[in-house]
Every structure is written in C-alpha cells, then in structure tokens.
Design a binder for these strands. Structure first.
Lengths: 130, 130
DNA sequence: TACGGATATACCTATATAGGTATATATGGT
DNA sequence: ACCATATATACCTATATAGGTATATCCGTA
C-alpha cells in the first residue's frame, strides 16, 4: 500500500474520526451517523472512499453493513493506525466521539446488529439507531 | 497542533518527500530541487505550505534559506514523523531520494551552505547546487 | 549602485474533492 | 407484491489546491 494513499485517507476530518472509531471496534453506518452527527450521505461517501482504497472492509449483516479495519493490514497501515490511536487520546474531537460511541452502544445487547434493529417489537420507542 | 493539519501536510507526495528528507537533516531549497528533480517554484510553494503550518522552520544562511524540522515539535508531530521515517524505509521513492541526497551532499565540505556556494572561486565548474 | 543568484509570491488554470439533493438498490417484514 | 429501513450512488456546486509562468524580493559582490 502506498504511503501517500494512506495519508490521503487521513487528511479529512470525517474520515479521521471514522478510522479512529474503527480502531476501537467495527461499526455500522447508522452508528457513524449517530456518533459523528452527520448526514447519511456524507458518512456513506467517506466510507466508500476508504473502502475503495482498502483502509476498511465491510460485511453485510442483515440490512446493515458493518465496517471494520482489515484483519491483516499492511505494515504501513498498521503503524499509522497505531500512531493515530495514540495521537487521538489528546484531542477532544476524538475523545468526545468515543464517549458518544459508548453511549450509542449502551443500548446494544449482544451482537452489533442488535442496537440497530427496528425495535418496534422490542421497545417500540426509538428510531433505528441507538 | 491539530492532527488533521499534520495529515493535510502529509497527503501530498512532494511534501511527504520533503519531510522525509528533513527527518534526516536540514536542507536548503536548491538541495530539494536537485534531489526531487522539481522546479524551484514547486518546491518553494510546498515549503511555504509546511512553514505556514509549523511543520518546518527556516533560518537564513547568507543567500540561502535552510529548512529544518522544528527543534521541539509537539508530540503528535514527533510521533508522526517517527512513523513516517519508519514507513519510508520500504518505499522506493523515498530510498531513491535518500541516495540522491547523499550524492548531492557529497560535494559539501563542512557547513551546509558550502555546497551551494557560487563556487567560481573554489572550483569554477558547477552550478549553484551540487 | 548595478547585477546575478536564491527564494518567494501573484496570478492563472485544471483537477480533486467535499458536501448537498434526489434517487437507486438491497433487505426484512407484512 | 408492497413497504419501510439501511445504504449506495448519480449528479451538481463550491472550494481547495497543485502546478505552471512571470515577476518580485533579498542577499552578496563587483
């Protein structure tokens, strides 16, 4: 993987926040919408940008698409993700995202998709994402 | 220093090569021209971009401007520079630059500016940069 | 003071891309 | 088959920026 391509992925704030979140755990699109408070199309396009360049991959889980970092990233990517995670500890944008992520996942019981379920059956009060 | 600003600096190949070279030693503009084989204006503008964002600083040395990494960089920058230097070892663009740097500096005797000196007095055969 | 060399900058153009609106596609449930 | 939800994409617009040409500035020297 060319180093420059990695940095091109990292040089947008939305993508940086996405990758930072993914360095903690896989997430589906609706989670990103909730955590980053950004419209679906914006999230989706940045995810596509990352996917096309191999920084993330996806698996379908029912109606949801779960995004995750690659299982065996090339060393340049792995090292940069380590660096990113380290640097993010000090910058409030990222710590705030983490807090929102925890909150968003709190309503998840078990597998990821649970908290995205339509829910009318279960609680009948919330919209799709937690 | 905001992380995103650092990545914006890293996401252009010319700037990446410049920073990589600087992670080894300070250099003046004419060195970059020679090593990167790029026109003066291109080098100069990318250096300005980096300077305005605090990734490099300059000192004048006679007619030359010597660019260097900051002496006490903020931790985010220091860590990313470490990461960069590490990753560059494997990518040919950067190793080739290093080779050209060594060659360009070979004709330097002592302080940096020496190899940029007009030289008619000393050897009278080369143009400004080595 | 005039000149040449080193570097910076003003200006222009082309391209990438971020962000939005509207729409398409896929999936599960009725 | 139909609908609602989740996600992706086509299309448009605005902006950033890369790269070039021409020119300005700064410095040392004659």
């Amino acid at each position: 993987m060319r180093l420059i391509e990695i940095y091109k992925c990292l040089c947008d704030e939305t993508r940086l926040r996405i990758l930072h979140l993914l360095s903690h755990r896989p997430l589906c699109v609706c989670h990103f919408q909730a955590i980053l408070r950004a419209p679906q199309v914006k999230i989706s396009k940045h995810l596509a940008y990352l996917r096309e360049r191999g920084l993330v991959h996806t698996r379908r889980e029912g109606a949801w698409i779960v995004y995750a970092l690659p299982a065996n990233p090339p060393p340049e990517l792995a090292e940069n993700m380590r660096c990113l995670q380290d640097c993010c500890r000090e910058q409030t944008v990222f710590t705030a995202d983490l807090r929102r992520m925890v909150k968003a996942l709190a309503s998840c019981s078990g597998p990821l998709a649970e908290c995205c379920a339509p829910a009318p059956k279960r609680r009948g009060r919330k919209t799709a994402h937690a």
